[in-house]
Amino acid sequence: MATTKVTAADFEQVVLKSTTPVLVDFWAEWCGPCRAVGPILEEISNEHGDKLKIVKLNTDEEGAIAMKYGISSIPTMNIFVDGQVVKSIVGARPKPALLKDLESYI
């Protein structure tokens, strides 16, 4: 399935209360590496979305959530299980490397 956009309004429902692991991609329009990794996350979501839900959070629009999770570099990809951050991947990387990082969730 395709990635979806998450906002403050549905963050709790979509991310924190999810019964499957969720990857939150903290990104912004002006960030080159974020735009580079975007299509890769899209592919991974299409291939593995049943096991790992991938959602995108725009740090320009949702600064409070980014601050709450101490985001200071983007892209940061946090994996949430049962409402807790269990893994944090910082920086764009090629698909095989990302799949390796995610292997215990997909």
């Binding site: 960030c31 101490g70 200071s72 570099s73």
Partner: peptide, 12 residues
């Protein structure tokens, strides 16, 4: 890295 150490001013 990603917690205050950065290599990309335009990103972070």
């Amino acid at each position: 890295s990603g917690r205050g150490v950065s290599w990309c001013a335009t990103c972070d």
